[in-house]
């Protein structure tokens, strides 16, 4: 299945959640390749959630914004929920001024909170085990 050349962005699997991150040096071709690979992995791994860490992105222009929105839509069609985590404050301000709201994209303050929103806790068993309320 993974016949295509990798774009260098690692995609890890933790249970039924895929964890990945975007790097600052992402060029357009790699961004497209990344979307392709992630979509394939969601389907082959049967993922129910995807965490995209963007805490290292120093800018988000309309191209990257579109990539994130398309990714979210495609994942949703495949039955997975995407959370984009760790947007830096200057990036958020710029994005809003640019006129982009990332409609439909769910966000979290950081990867840890994003994973929690996807049902993952530091001490948690597999998600279907229902870790509800145990750490409160």
């Amino acid at each position: 299945m993974n016949g295509r050349p990798s774009n260098g962005v690692p995609i890890l699997r933790l249970g039924d959640v895929l964890v990945t991150g975007l790097l600052n040096e992402l060029d357009d071709k790699s961004a497209v390749a990344f979307t392709d690979e992630l979509t394939t992995r969601i389907s082959t791994d049967g993922a129910r959630g995807v965490l995209v860490d963007i805490s290292r992105l120093e800018i988000i222009d309309s191209f990257v914004a579109r990539t994130l929105m398309e990714l979210t839509t495609m994942a949703r069609l495949l039955g997975a929920r995407v959370i984009v985590a760790g947007m830096r404050p200057p990036v958020a301000i710029t994005l809003v001024e640019l006129g982009l709201q990332l409609d439909g994209v769910e966000t979290a303050l950081n990867a840890e909170l994003g994973m929690a929103a996807l049902g993952w806790y530091q001490s948690a068993q597999p998600p279907q085990g229902g870790g509800r309320d145990t750490d409160r």
Partner: peptide, 12 residues
């Protein structure tokens, strides 16, 4: 409104 949108983009 912009402030609220930026806050939401950050995940709060």
């Amino acid at each position: 409104l912009q402030t609220v949108n930026a806050v939401r983009l950050m995940g709060a």
